[in-house]
């Protein structure tokens, strides 16, 4: 692929977004997308159900990775937006909206709720920020628990799904989870390729220098927090549809934050592929070790500790650095072009 952006009499520049052909990765991705779109009609129902839960985790982990891996905001309270998303779906469904239509609505509601929250949270840094997110999540749990319409502390089932057959419900929820995961991952990729992606990378590398290069750090963080809230809200909405019953203590569970964190860390923080690979490992371990009870959690925890200590870039981060492959490149590769085409050599020192 040769994309030329050059049209200037002074400097003729050829700027590419990856240093290898994207044809192979894009055709592979297309095949995978088509297969996963028809998977519920091909693979066994239980496997499709597992895939659906996998998508939900991928959505959450991708959002958590955007927050912590790119914008430096370690949140242990993202379950706030998972829960609020689930309850937004319940609320709209109670008002007669088709449950599947409530998914984008839940994302918007969570994004809007995140706006005032950023004015409180973004004053805090590091550990204080993390604890404050947890406080927000617990506050949301307690507030939702007092609303009788939404079933209070005991919960309620999402109406509007009863007229579908179980198979239809399974297929539609699968497709909803798949579509949201695809949108979230693709959206994250395009976001990181945009100007904001470069801004996030600069903040990650050196916040002070980023500011003096003209970066509005607070605004960038706010945007990412809102995007992550909307994404987790959509995940919560899908969760609400996929489960027969929603309850505050389960949708607002700290377990979601723990899973997002583990999956991102194992796969590789600060990479788009990382959370997906982490989620695959998480589900594979769960499948293999299910019969041994809680052992998969113990093994998973050990794996997380080992990776945090010896491979802090995670599985994908380590692999990428060693083999110089980027499935989803977000960087820039520049060449100067003149009458005699001269290549700018990549100088490694």
């Amino acid at each position: 692929m040769t994309v030329s952006n050059s049209a200037n009499e002074l400097v003729s520049l050829d700027v590419r977004r990856s240093n290898h052909s994207e044809w192979f990765t894009s055709s592979g991705a297309l095949a995978l997308i088509i297969f996963l779109s028809v998977a519920p009609w091909i693979v066994p129902a239980e496997f499709a159900a597992t895939l659906m839960n996998f998508y939900i985790l991928v959505i959450m982990a991708t959002m958590w990775n955007l927050l912590a891996g790119y914008a430096g905001m370690v949140s242990i309270g993202q379950q706030a937006f998972v829960g609020l998303g689930a309850y937004a779906t319940l609320y709209f469904a109670l008002k007669g909206v088709n449950p599947f239509v409530t998914i984008p609505l839940a994302a918007v509601v969570c994004g809007l709720l995140a706006v005032p929250i950023t004015y409180l949270l973004l004053r805090l840094r590091g550990g204080y920020f993390a604890i404050a997110t947890w406080v927000v999540a617990d506050t949301a749990l307690l507030v939702i628990g007092t609303i009788a319409l939404l079933g209070g502390g005991t919960g309620r089932s999402v109406p509007g799904l009863q007229n579908l057959t179980p198979t239809q419900t399974a297929h539609y929820s699968y497709l909803a989870a798949w579509a949201v995961a695809l949108i979230v991952v693709a959206g994250t990729y395009f976001l990181l390729r945009s100007r904001l992606g470069l801004v996030l990378a600069s903040i990650r590398d050196n916040e002070v220098a980023a500011r003096s290069a003209g970066v509005n750090v607070r605004a960038a963080r706010r945007t990412i927090f809102i995007v992550a809230a909307a994404g987790c809200g959509a995940a919560g909405a899908v969760l609400a549809i996929s489960q027969p019953f929603i309850q505050p203590s389960s949708v607002f569970s700290l377990q979601w934050a723990a899973e997002m964190l583990f999956v991102s860390m194992i796969g590789g923080l600060g990479t788009i592929e990382g959370p997906i690979i982490g989620a695959i490992i998480f589900f594979a371990l769960q499948q293999f070790l299910q019969q041994d009870g809680v052992w998969y959690l113990i093994i998973f925890g050990t794996l997380a500790v080992v990776i945090a200590l010896w491979q802090p870039r995670g599985i994908w981060g380590t692999f990428r650095d060693r083999f110089h492959v980027d499935l989803l490149p977000v960087g820039y590769h520049v060449r100067r072009r003149s009458n005699i085409v001269e290549e700018v050599p990549v100088v490694e020192e």
Binding site: L198, V199, A201, S202, R204, D205, G331, V334
Partner: peptide
């Protein structure tokens, strides 16, 4: 910005 390329360093400054 150590993990970015030299060009990306100045590109960020040019854009922001």
């Amino acid at each position: 910005f150590e993990k970015m390329t030299v060009f990306e360093n100045t590109l960020l400054a040019a854009q922001q």
